[in-house]
Every structure is written in structure tokens, then in C-alpha cells.
């Protein structure tokens, strides 16, 4: 399946994200990952925050959240959300030597949700080009309802209803 950038003119280069055609793909990526992290942006609404918490709890995955969403996580009694702005977490995920949120080292999988389209488009571009991990690069996944060409894997452009079906499907395959 071919992905098309949600913002028409945001044409990527030769390397484009694989389209997530089935939420089992993401579930498999998460299960195979030794250190995944979920990154939540400033556009996260209540539903995104709730799904993020469910995803985090499903696999014990920490969340780096744009500070403006912290209140929403705290109100739900969720404590594994760490304050990093979009550019701050982007810069750290790029750095192979970053110690991570818990001091145990870098992550091998970063999932993104709750961002303005162009914000994660740019952060993911930075990671695609510069986030070295050994011989390869950090694997990134965009879980927003828009195709993000700079991710390694991305959902396609989806209606809100279809997007929720995909996220619920992912949670199901992660045992929630």
C-alpha cells in the first residue's frame, strides 16, 4: 500500500515509511523491541492520552510527553510520563549515547502520537537521518491518523473512526 503525505506538498525523499496495514505489525514491532518508548505531543486530546496510557501499561513502555499534556496524565493517576518537549525528546532520541529516561540507555523503538502533522513530520525526519543505532537507525512508528513519510512505519491517512479501530486493534494484540 502506498502512503500519501497528509499535507500534500510534504513530499519525502527516496526513503518513505512503510504503511501499517494491520495493527498486528505494530504489536509485533513493540514485542520485538527491547526498549520501546512512546512520545506524546501537544495536540493530544483526551482520547489520545487515554490510549497512550493503555499502550504504556500494556508493555511497560515509558512515555515522554510534551509538558502541556502532563496535567492530563497526572489527572489520570499515571506516573510514567516524563516531561520533554518535541524538540528536546527528538534531540535526545537522535543521540546514540543518551542515557534514556531511566538511565539504562537508548531506545530501539519510538512510537509517536498526538502531534501537529508538521511537527512530527520534522522530528521524524531528524530521527530518520541522524538517529544511528549501531549499523542501523532507530525504528520509529507514527500512530497519528496521518501518513508520516519520515517514520519507519506509519498509519495511513485515516478518519477518526478508522484510526480508533486501529489503536484499539493494537491494544487488543498487546493483550489489553
Amino acid at each position: 500500500m502506498r502512503g500519501e503525505s497528509w499535507q500534500t506538498a510534504e513530499i519525502p525523499g527516496p526513503k518513505k515509511a512503510h504503511v501499517i496495514t494491520d495493527p498486528r505489525i505494530v504489536a509485533s514491532l513493540i514485542k520485538r523491541s527491547s526498549r520501546p518508548i512512546l512520545v506524546v505531543g501537544g495536540e493530544a486530546d483526551e482520547a489520545v492520552v487515554n490510549y497512550a496510557i493503555e499502550l504504556s501499561k500494556a508493555v511497560g513502555m515509558p512515555i515522554a510527553a510534551t509538558p502541556s499534556t502532563l496535567k492530563a496524565f497526572a489527572e489520570r493517576g499515571f506516573k510514567d510520563a516524563h516531561p520533554f518537549s518535541a524538540v528536546e525528546i527528538g534531540e535526545r532520541l537522535r543521540d546514540p549515547d543518551w542515557e534514556g529516561l531511566d538511565g539504562s540507555g537508548q531506545y530501539d523503538l519510538a512510537l509517536f502520537m498526538g502531534f501537529k502533522y508538521y511537527v512530527s513530520w520534522l522530528i521524524l525526519s531528524g530521527l530518520k537521518h541522524f538517529a544511528k543505532r549501531g549499523e542501523g537507525y532507530l525504528t520509529t512508528v507514527s500512530l497519528d491518523p496521518y501518513y508520516q513519510p519520515h517514520a519507519s512505519w506509519s498509519l495511513p491517512n485515516l478518519t477518526r473512526e478508522r484510526w480508533e479501530e486501529n489503536i484499539k486493534g493494537l491494544l487488543h494484540h498487546l493483550g489489553r
Binding site: 524538540v87 527528538g90 522530528i123 525526519s125 531528524g126 537521518h129
Partner: peptide, 8 residues
Amino acid sequence: FYMPFCDL
């Protein structure tokens, strides 16, 4: 921290 706008 670079965020390329174009890969080319």
C-alpha cells in the same frame, strides 16, 4: 538538532 525539510 537537524530536521531536514528535504532529503535531497
